[in-house]
Simulated assay, not measured.
Amino acid sequence: MIQLMSVNFDDHIPNWRTQLETIQYNVLVVVREGKVKYEINGEEIIAEEEDVLFIPQSTRRSGGNWNGIPHRKYTILFTTDPHVPTGIPFLGGGQCLKFNLAHIQYAYRRCERLFEEMRGGKSYRSMICQGIMQELLGMLARELEKTELPPSKRNYADTIKSYLLDHYREPIEIDKLAKLIHRSPNYATALFKEVYGHSPIRYMHQLRVLEACSLLLHSDMTIAHIAHYLGYYDTSYFYRMFKKYTGLSPSDYVQQGDRSDVSKLFT
């Protein structure tokens, strides 16, 4: 049985730190931006953007901003009943683990939903929070079962991903991505899909649509302006891509507002 204690979102806290202590609960850290430094049982561990860190109960732990630079992360504190099996092997291992999830953007959305639900008072809140937490832990357990990728493959895929994060608003050509790692276009596409679960072009569209969701809700830009800003010079094509990944038209998404769950973008 998993018992949630709290879910926190640290958003660029200037002097964030936790004192050195032996914790009596498990901690799941999901870093969204920047880096965070922990001392865990005498060992320094740096978790950065897109890292997920599991710190088990009875660990001696302290933490703080890396080099004094604020970061953004979700921190989930929870306990388990030692007499009730969870079905999640790593929870009973007593080891600190650092993960790289193929679907990290989806994990961000689930953490965001969990954070919101924990602070709400709607019916079935406890059941929904339990479901989200079990899903996150299941994703991590599945990640541990994957065959370990050679470091070279991970590095190649990370190189392509970093380029896409910086240039997703620009036209993306597979040939150019392949040249980044000095491999063929077919190899680059297959490699990226092996590591992250989808093609580079799909990932580009996901990033564009995710930003479109934010701009639709939090800017005064028109739909046509947003489409052009994100590299869709045909507004009708932007409409098709947006509906493909969210299930809604841009106008319908605005009407639903913050109630819309864009986590489906990364399934």
Results as ranks from 00 to 15, higher is better:
Q105L: 14
L97S: 00
S62W: 03
L180A: 10
I181A: 11
G121K: 12
D166L: 12
D261P: 07
D258N: 07
F99P: 02
A102P: 07
K153I: 05
E50L: 06
N155G: 14
E50A: 13
E39K: 04
I201D: 09
E116W: 15
L144V: 02
I23W: 02
L4V: 03
E21G: 01
M127N: 05
I55C: 02
G34R: 03
P85C: 08
S6M: 07
I88C: 02
I13E: 14
D252L: 08
D51T: 01
A227Q: 02
E21D: 11
E173R: 14
I223A: 04
E39H: 12
L149N: 08
Y187D: 06
R154H: 10
S260M: 09
Q24H: 12
N67I: 07
E173M: 12
E43W: 02
Y124W: 10
W66V: 04
D81G: 14
E39S: 15
F266Q: 05
Q24Y: 07
I104M: 13
G131K: 01
H71I: 04
V31H: 05
E148G: 00
D51Y: 06
L207K: 10
P89T: 01
P82G: 09
G93M: 04
G92W: 00
W66Y: 11
Y25H: 15
L101R: 07
Y237F: 13
Q134F: 04
F90Q: 01
A188F: 03
Y203G: 07
T59R: 15
C111L: 12
Y245M: 00
N186S: 12
S152F: 09
P82K: 02
I128D: 03
P14E: 09
R113N: 08
R240F: 05
L114R: 02
C129S: 15
T75R: 03
V209C: 03
V36F: 04
E143H: 07
R61G: 00
R113I: 04
M5N: 15
L210H: 10
Q57V: 15
R202H: 14
W16F: 05
L180S: 12
N8Q: 10
K122G: 10
M127G: 01
Y229W: 09
G87K: 03
F54V: 00
R109P: 00
G87P: 11
E43A: 09
H83M: 14
T246V: 02
H205V: 13
L53I: 04
F9V: 13
G64K: 01
H71S: 12
Y124E: 13
E112Q: 11
R183V: 08
R32G: 10
T59M: 07
F115D: 05
L265N: 01
H225G: 07
L165M: 14
E43H: 06
Y245T: 00
G257P: 05
E117C: 03
A47F: 05
I76W: 02
G34M: 04
Y106F: 15
T80W: 05
G131Q: 08
E112L: 14
Q95R: 14
S236F: 05
V27C: 09
A178L: 13
R72H: 14
H228M: 06
M133P: 02
H225A: 15
D220L: 04
L140H: 01
E135G: 02
N26A: 13
I40A: 13
S236A: 14
